[in-house]
Design a protein around this nucleic acid. Structure first.
Length: 744
DNA sequence: GGTAAAGTGTTCCGC
DNA sequence: ACACTTTACC
């Protein structure tokens, strides 16, 4: 039976990546009736309620192919939108494969990506500068901090992050600062004022944040009749993936583009709605049925991914949520392996357990790439990463410290930005003294003052300082050096390709030299990251083709929008995949570990007081569980180091919500009361011995207490303590350096 | 103005 | 525990 499962797994893997193009008739043969109906539904509005693992992405892709090949619609009139970059890339790749000859003007991307494209095409109509810049949430927070200073708001009184989420939430709802109605509460009034100032700041500097991309794109369609008609006429077919994750403005965005003549297909699963915190509204699913005429509803409830054990667990868990549209997944697959729950001593023990199980799996049957390690928050990846590194297991981490968000990368990009656009004040502020040129806060204050009184950009202020001798001596030399560097880059920018430009940026700016000359692993790392940036531009150009003329601008936007995943595609072909559950949505793995299944981590303590938040956590857990095809591991630790302190932890309520019949518990402690420990894991105990050579379950002898069994241990070297259950006198902790303990 | 030490807060998820 | 910021001193 084990062997059968293995063969099935391998078979399944081979078949999910077909090598040869398949004919239309062949696709349909491989689909169940509901899937067929979804793919071939006649032009009109379709709502596909698709459970996890029911093949919804496949259906969506094949419907697009159907539209092109069967209805002979031009790809030019198709707009397909997904929620994450990863999903967008995957959809593009699958489409190119299935249609076979490029995308021919089809718009495929994330809501943000497509909005960005719209703004780039119509910057004039939007009232944006041509070189407007997309800022990430980090930049956004910095701007808000600056506004706090200007408005004399103490950061202790209002957290900048609160203001940030206030602004983003309002934008997600489609509201501008001036359209907010007057509020009596001082707090709200402050927030509104901050929002207003923030808008002014962004407008003055040509900055566009993520939420702004959506809002501005919507507004321009709303206000510009000609533009609206153009796009309404162009796009005949709309397809939206992960519809449950759309927020207010995204839904309006869709609505304004779709006329009665358009066909709109949306795919969603209310049980997988996990982006409520960024404004996603499940109600959009019901709204769709209401707002669009003659909606055909198709349900995909057969799961092709997981064993029935995993599916039952997921179903049982999600039953605890009240607000559901209601849907039960079923499968024809067998029960497969039980879900293994491991109670670890601490987070390191948890990581070691994961390592042991991975080794076991890979030695016996599989390969690394079939394994996914999922966690609630990125911070958890570190301990796991270290353990994998020590064990020599190849791994890839998605997300986390995003590549383009690293300080040294942002510095380099700021040089790039400034050489494209001298008016970019934020860029100057970032790099005028990076690497250090002796231009400190005092001098910079002076420059800022000049730019304010002269009503000019910082760059012009710097020029003034030089030409009018407002700053002299050492600092003047530093400024001249800076200006010289930028001017050189500015000329180069016109003459050379993006990769060569990038190479020059890291060289001429002195950033690379600065980090290389510094000692310490961290500085070397940063230098390496900078060098990697040149490679990133190569990859980017390869990806884009020759179509884009001003590739520098495009690259900067790409850096902001697709913040990271540098290390992914190439060298990690056969590696364990590590990511948050959020970014695992849409993916699947034969083997899945979910770590940190503890109260206040998962569900996260921020959601403990709110039912809606708690239900979202539960849906997140549901998403995590349903990523697994064959085997699921759930791990938690009894103690976890947080902020440098050992904290006691309790198993997540979500574990309790899974029927015990589906679970096999793996515990490192041995129950000595019973003759037979009764754990399948027991074979591992000997090879998993403590450094002192003692292992769990081992029989030992003590001169005073007699014979006993090792049930636990902790510490290292002289500090090692062994927990022994003595046959005659019960449990005792013994310090190994004192106790004369012998193996029997 | 630059460096080292001391002090501070920090981590939820992502476009 | 660690990274980032403020302070103290060169």
């Amino acid at each position: 039976m084990q062997i059968k499962a293995i063969i099935d797994t391998m078979f399944g893997i081979m078949h999910t990546e077909p090598n040869a193009p398949i004919s239309l008739a062949d696709w349909l043969k491989n689909l169940n009736p509901a899937q067929q109906q979804a793919v071939t539904a006649p032009p009109g509005n379709v709502l596909i309620l698709a459970g996890a693992g029911s093949g919804k992405t496949r259906v969506l892709v094949q419907r697009i192919a159907w539209i092109v090949n069967e209805w002979h619609s031009s790809p030019y009139g198709i707009l397909a939108v997904t929620f994450t970059n990863k999903a967008a890339h995957e959809m593009k790749a699958r489409l190119e494969h299935i249609i076979g000859h490029g995308l021919h003007g089809m718009w495929v991307g994330t809501f943000h990506g497509l909005s960005h494209r719209l703004l780039r095409l119509h910057w004039r109509e939007c009232g944006l500068p041509e070189h407007f810049q997309v800022i990430d949430s980090d930049d956004q927070l910095q701007i808000i901090r600056k506004i706090f200073k200007k408005m004399n708001i103490n950061e202790d009184r209002i957290e900048p992050k609160k203001a940030q989420s206030f602004i983003n939430r309002k934008k997600d709802e489609g509201k501008r600062a001036k359209s907010l109605h007057y509020s009596d509460s001082l707090y709200d009034k402050n927030m509104q004022e901050i929002y207003l100032q923030y808008e002014i700041q962004c407008e003055e500097n040509g900055l566009v944040d993520f939420a702004e991309l959506l809002l501005k794109a919507f507004e321009i369609l709303q206000q510009n009749e000609e533009l609206k008609l153009h796009y309404q006429e162009r796009f005949k077919h709309f397809l939206v993936d992960e519809f449950q994750d759309t927020n207010g403005i995204q839904y309006q965005w869709l609505k304004i583009l779709t006329t009665k003549a358009a066909s709109v297909t949306v795919v969603g699963d209310d049980d997988q709605s996990i982006y409520g915190w960024r404004g996603a509204k499940i109600e959009n699913i019901q709204a769709f049925e209401h707002d669009y005429k003659a909606v055909t509803v198709i349900r995909l409830e057969q799961n092709y991914r997981s064993t029935s054990t995993i599916l039952h667990a997921a179903n049982a868990l999600i039953m605890n949520n009240d607000a559901r549209l209601g849907k039960t997944l079923w499968t024809e697959s067998g029960a497969g392996e039980l879900i293994r729950v491991y109670c670890a001593f601490n987070e390191e023990d948890e990581a070691l357990y994961v390592v042991r199980q991975i080794k076991k799996y890979v030695e016996a049957i599989g390969s690394y790439q079939e394994i996914g390690i999922l966690y609630r928050s990125n911070a958890q990846s570190r301990v796991l990463e270290e353990a994998l590194l020590r064990a020599g297991i190849p791994y890839t981490i998605y997300g986390g410290l995003r590549y383009f968000e690293r300080a040294e990368i942002k510095d380099a990009l700021a040089y790039l930005r400034l050489s494209v656009n001298l008016q970019d004040n934020a860029a100057i502020e970032r790099i005028i003294n990076m690497p250090p040129r002796g231009i400190g806060d005092k001098s910079f204050e002076k420059i800022k003052e000049i730019s304010q009184t002269q009503e000019c950009s910082l760059w012009q202020a710097v020029e003034l300082c030089i030409s009018k001798n407002l700053i002299t001596g050492r600092i003047r030399a530093g400024l001249l050096d800076f200006m010289d560097t930028i001017q050189k880059l500015q000329t180069l920018c016109i003459e050379v390709t993006l990769p060569i430009m990038m190479e020059n940026v890291i060289q001429l700016s002195g950033l690379l030299r600065y980090y290389k000359e510094q000692k310490g692993e961290r500085a070397q790392n940063r230098a390496e990251n900078l060098e990697e940036l040149v490679n990133a531009t190569f990859d980017f150009e390869a990806e884009q083709g020759e179509e884009i003329s001003s590739s520098t601008i495009a690259f900067l936007a790409y850096a902001a929008l697709e913040g990271g995943e540098r290390q992914s595609t190439k060298d990690n072909f056969n590696a364990v995949q590590m990511m948050t559950i959020h970014s695992a949505k849409g993916l699947e793995f034969p083997v899945v570990f979910i770590t940190g299944m503890e109260e206040s981590l998962f569900p996260h303590h921020f959601s403990k007081d709110s039912t809606t938040a708690l239900e979202e956590e539960r849906r997140l857990c549901y998403v995590g569980i349903t990523r697994a095809k064959q085997q699921l591991f759930l791990c938690y630790a009894e103690k976890r180091r947080l902020f440098g302190r050992d904290e006691e932890r309790f198993p997540s309520r979500f574990i309790r919500e899974i029927p015990t019949a589906l679970i096999e518990e793996n515990t490192r402690r041995v129950k000595v009361e019973h003759q037979d420990p009764g754990f399948s894991f027991v074979n591992d105990l000997r090879q998993d011995a403590h450094e002192s050579g003692f292992y769990l379950g081992q029989r030992v002898k003590h001169p005073k207490f007699g014979n006993g069994t090792v049930v636990d241990y902790e510490g290292h070297g002289d500090r090692t303590r062994i927990h022994v259950h003595f046959d005659m006198c019960g449990n005792k902790w013994l310090a190994l350096s004192f106790a004369k303990l012998e193996a029997v």
